[in-house]
Design a protein around this nucleic acid. Structure first.
Lengths: 209, 209
DNA sequence: GTCTATACAATGATAGAC
DNA sequence: GTCTATCATTGTATAGAC
């Protein structure tokens, strides 16, 4: 098969990256374990950095689709959407992914924090572009739930993303539900309180993260 | 001078790491720019990973000392300490460091997120050990400000650390005060609300992050 | 103790045959 | 698409000068 090579590389790379980190994992190790030729990685993905990026793209596509689907359900349920449920639609799929991503023990999302490192320019930029659509949708939903302008929420949503990202790296299988509930509660309180402070509608310069 | 070589390596490495990332920066580039011999890095620091760790140690020592000093001032001011000021003592020095660290343009703390990547085991573990003293002191102060057990605050403080870390990577010079105020407010609201949910005193298994 | 010059195995990447 | 052979560059180790 021609396409199975590409996918086999992706699967093996994801597992090895999660276990050993990006730098410690060599292309020779990946290709040996995936039973493909060394040059196949560069042929199918271009470079090692591009392979790392491809590993992320696949998971982030799942994650963001799931988030948007859940958000739509929440928006359909009530017109001023429920803030807790909006944040839940953002947080819960991420924590789920962090502990049970497709086959491997569940250590995939530890890579998200690992990944900010290495090729920060290319990878962080691409991830940000991936998130920008989702971020816009959620910022809009949160703003309607609170009755404030979406612009003022960017910073607080960044706080939430930071807390979520950091938490993903530390959460293990059994704690997903409990952790998600705690983080939703934490974020709701912070957002509601910040909304009281800035009820006006000003616009800040764009700062996508 | 005998000590200037070690420090020159540290300074040059910090700047290059911040600009290009850890992996992209080679030892030959560092030693060339610092005008020292290639082997000097391994002689003074042991390895490239150890050099990365040393770069962090230096800044984290400053940061944690500053945090504890400010915390002491807050504790001296009033016996049930003011929660806003406690969080400020934790957050403000970090954001300051992230934008104006010792000479270089201020891109140092961008490394903190970058760093969780590469040698996650050794570096993340050592950083956690560095933070554990500070974390304990702040958890204690927050618990007294709220009137709850410190154990129940671990998770919420982790949320705050995540938000802070993520924010540090994105904050630029002019936004320190404003960002710190917003993050303090966000964290206070989350902590106060979570304290209402769990006023009991149970103990969870240790999970230092 | 510090520093230098040099050497080494392993890595990511590429070119060209099939 | 896949493979073999090969390249420049990397982090690290060592031997020896000051």
């Amino acid at each position: 098969m021609t396409d199975s090579t590409r996918q086999r590389i992706l699967d093996t790379a994801e597992q090895l990256f999660a276990d050993q980190g990006f730098h410690a994992t060599t292309l020779r190790q990946i290709t040996r374990e995936a039973q493909v030729n060394l040059a196949a990685v560069n042929y199918h993905h271009g470079s090692k950095d591009a392979l790392i990026l491809a590993v992320f793209q696949r998971r982030l596509d799942e994650l963001n689709s799931e988030r948007l689907a859940r958000l739509q359900s929440v928006l359909d349920a009530s017109d001023p959407p429920d803030l807790e449920k909006v944040l839940g639609a953002f947080i819960y799929p991420a924590l789920l992914l962090s502990t049970q991503s497709a086959g491997d023990g569940g250590r995939f999302m530890r890579l998200l924090m690992r990944a900010w490192a290495e090729n920060a320019t290319q990878l962080h930029g691409t991830i940000a572009r991936q998130y920008s659509h989702v971020m816009r949708a959620f910022a809009d939903a949160v703003s309607r739930a609170l009755g404030t302008s979406p612009d003022n929420l960017r910073q607080q949503l960044d706080f939430l993303i930071g807390a979520l990202t950091y938490t993903m790296a530390e959460t293990t299988d059994g704690q997903v539900e409990e952790t998600a509930r705690a983080l939703v509660r934490f974020g709701c309180a912070g957002l509601r309180d910040s909304a009281l402070a800035q009820p006006r509608q000003t616009s800040l310069k764009e700062n996508i993260a």
